[in-house]
Computed example of a mutant assay.
Amino acid sequence: MKLLVTGTGGQLGSELKDLSASYSGYDFIFVGRKEFPLEDIGGIAGRLDALKPDTIINAAAYTAVDLAETAADSADRINHLGVGQIADWCRGNRAKLVHLSTDYVFDGNNDQPIVEESAKNPINTYGQTKHLGEEAIIASGADAIIIRTAWVYSSYGKNFVKTMLRLMSERDEIAVVNDQIGSPTYAHDLAKAILDIVHSDKWANGVYNYSNEGRISWYDFAVAIRDIRGLACKVNGIPTEAYPTPAKRPQYSLLDKRKIKATFGVAVPDWRASLTACLGKLKPTSRQNLQPYT
């Protein structure tokens, strides 16, 4: 079976590549933006015709949330129009699709865990393009699983964990937003959940949520990073208004994971255990770029 993974240079794509050796019976094909540019709308079908995958895991996306506010066309081509082309190809070629989406399709104006059926109402350009991508998949009729996730981090790429480690090594004191609530997602855990679903005989198309268990703020996350690593930096909590960004962020992003657990029996580790595991893969903090152990 041919399994195509897009976005191989990103956090999730890198974790999927690491785990692929543990899943037999698949001919994995990993492609990045150079080999498979989603913004090249007209070329997607031809590339897929050449590769002929049985299943596609679309981990590619335009994820620069703030830059998307001034690059809406690029974000839309990658997160919406390109995704629609993949879904149409899957429908026409009887291929399965696993597509990654985001909590940003919601406005965050709630205080209860978000279920898959909650009304979507994105409040920034990134969220809007991801919402349209979901709708394009559904409209295509493709045999697809859409997985919404949030606050993704990994030992690969750029993310909140690495940023906090760098800042805490450079400064005696930092400020972190304390009124945005959710749960982080260790990309390694998400990658394993995806591959377990693909590998099982329990395929059931639809929309699912996945993040690690727990309910925290970005401030809580930063404090945990500091404490687990044993750093001395003081972390001050601040409201969202004190840290303005070009794109608005949802205030509440806690995803309800009952559906994905009940349907596929996937494991959803606690956020602190997963953070500890990720930090264990990173070299001791320095003023240089943080890299995973190899």
Rank of each mutant, 00 (worst) to 15 (best):
D189E: 11
Y186F: 10
P239Y: 04
E241S: 15
L231C: 10
L254K: 02
I194N: 05
I216R: 01
P246I: 12
A242N: 13
V223D: 10
T240W: 03
Y243N: 15
G237A: 10
R249G: 00
N205D: 14
A242K: 14
D196I: 05
T245G: 06
A204P: 06
K192Y: 11
E241I: 10
I216H: 07
R249M: 09
A187C: 09
I197A: 03
R249S: 10
V198D: 12
H188A: 13
E213F: 11
K234G: 09
H199Y: 12
P250G: 09
A191L: 00
E241N: 09
I238F: 08
I228D: 04
G237W: 00
I225C: 03
V207S: 07
S217M: 00
E213N: 13
E241H: 08
H188R: 13
I197W: 05
Q251N: 14
R226A: 11
H199E: 13
L190A: 12
W203F: 13
D196S: 00
P246Q: 10
G182I: 01
D227P: 04
V207C: 09
N209Q: 08
I194A: 03
K248G: 14
I181H: 02
I181E: 00
E241M: 13
V235L: 03
P239G: 06
A187Y: 03
H188G: 15
A193V: 00
R229N: 10
P239V: 01
K234I: 14
T185W: 01
E213C: 11
D227S: 07
I238R: 09
I181G: 07
D189P: 04
A242W: 08
V207Y: 07
Y243H: 15
T245K: 15
Q251L: 08
T240C: 13
A204F: 01
P184K: 04
I238P: 10
A191Y: 01
S217K: 00
S211G: 10
L190H: 04
A224V: 02
V198S: 10
N209D: 11
A224Q: 09
F221M: 12
G182N: 00
D220M: 02
R215D: 03
Q251D: 10
E213W: 05
R229C: 13
A232E: 15
T240Y: 12
A224N: 02
E241K: 13
H188F: 14
G230Y: 07
I216L: 11
D196N: 01
V223W: 03
S211T: 15
Y243C: 14
Y252Q: 04
R249Q: 11
T240L: 12
V223M: 07
Y219E: 13
I228P: 02
I228C: 06
P239C: 05
E241W: 07
A232S: 15
Y186M: 01
L254G: 03
